[in-house]
Amino acid sequence: MPQVPLADYLILATVLFVIGLVGFLVRRNPITMLMAIELMWNAGNLVFAAFARNFGDMTGQVFVFIVITVAAAEAAISLAIVVMVFRHREDVDVDDISVMRG
């Protein structure tokens, strides 16, 4: 069974990450932006897993597990924030929320 080269995994992960990044920067719907962030998390996870196999080390996989946990926590908190903002105003555009302006 021929192996897929490590570089292909890394580049695939990069493509996914860039799609998530561009999505985060371009979209204005906070829910879509959060999903773009999930894409970036996953791209990172893919890199960890690929290196774990490459080096035959379990640490990378454990790290993916922890990232998944943190991502879950992040998603929960972010969605809670979005819910609060939606409660306050009917129409949510990220650009309209700039109360942290310096």
Partner: peptide, 30 residues
């Protein structure tokens, strides 16, 4: 533009630094 630039740079770096894969992993990995 930033995304494309990042993609290009990482791809370039990956191609340069990680062109070879290591030997087969241990059987019980994962």
């Amino acid at each position: 533009a930033a995304g494309v630039a990042a993609l290009g740079l990482i791809a370039f770096g990956v191609r340069t630094a990680w062109s070879q894969s290591a030997a087969s992993p241990p059987a019980d990995l994962g």
